[in-house]
């Protein structure tokens, strides 16, 4: 046992509580000897467990179906390969290219794709609210929207390959962010004008931190619609925007 429990015997207890609640960091948690208290360790482990699960689990078929998404896959065949080979997560096979050319709307104003990325949890948590905000918003502005796609094992730049195959004007890629300990639900939206394979990252616009405690999905949806309108007007994205 330790002779001190700073959590109950600090010099200024109210200040300690305020510090612990004000900061997003894990402050003021005290110690047991040199080590953290058991409850602090377990809460840290719980957050890490959620983050790991977000990386390692898959988006459910039910979510994909309910959102009306057509499922395709990148060149990656499993989770291990996904993590070790980002290059393969950016490409699609010739069969997949043919599949989407056959099944999807050709040359839409906006092509929306959803990728599991590094967090299936982020996709599960956001797209039910985010997708209808996008489709409503695009409709209101008179943009045609392509067939909604879900890409398993997709990286950000797979939007270039898909956009090029479908000859879309603009692609919106909704992709799970690398989870942090604070949340595993964070999604990013990447937007590109005139997609083609090898298009530099700097020409992509991004809205990140989409999750219930960050930018709420519905608000993000309205923001993406605005940004697509700007991209459409300026015929450029990312650093091409003024």
């Amino acid at each position: 046992m330790t002779d001190i429990d700073p959590h109950t015997d600090p010099e200024d207890e109210t200040a300690l509580d305020r510090i612990a609640s004000a900061s997003p960091s894990r402050l003021g948690l005290g110690r047991s000897g040199t080590r953290p208290r058991t409850a602090s360790v377990l809460s840290f482990r719980a957050d890490h467990a959620q983050a790991r699960d977000a990386v390692l689990t898959h988006v459910s078929e039910e979510t994909i179906e309910n959102a009306g998404l057509l499922k395709v896959t990148s060149l990656v065949s499993d989770q291990d390969e996904y993590l070790a080979r980002p290059d393969r997560g950016r490409q699609i096979s010739e069969e997949t290219a043919e599949q989407i050319r056959d099944a999807c709307t050709h040359a839409p104003d906006v092509q929306i794709i959803v990728c599991d990325g590094l967090s299936s949890t982020a996709v599960e948590a956001n797209i039910a609210d985010l997708l209808p905000m996008l489709t409503d918003g695009f409709e209101e502005r008179g943009f045609t929207v392509g067939t909604l796609l879900f890409v398993e094992f997709g990286r950000v730049d797979i939007m270039d390959a898909i956009g090029e195959e479908l000859e879309a004007d603009i692609v919106v890629n909704l992709i799970g962010e690398r989870p942090g300990l604070n949340t595993a639900k964070s999604l990013s939206a990447y937007l590109v004008y005139g997609p083609e394979r090898g298009k530099p990252t700097a020409t992509k616009s991004v809205i990140s931190n989409i999750h219930p405690d960050g930018l709420p999905a519905i608000e993000a949806g309205a923001q993406i619609v605005d940004l697509v309108a700007t991209i459409h007007d300026q015929q450029g994205s990312g650093i091409e925007l003024t």
């Binding site: 001190i4 700073p6 200040a15 402050l27 040199t34």
Partner: peptide
């Protein structure tokens, strides 16, 4: 560490 350690409020 002494008994005072681990308490950030000593610097307030």
């Amino acid at each position: 560490l002494t008994s005072k350690a681990g308490d950030p409020t000593v610097f307030l």
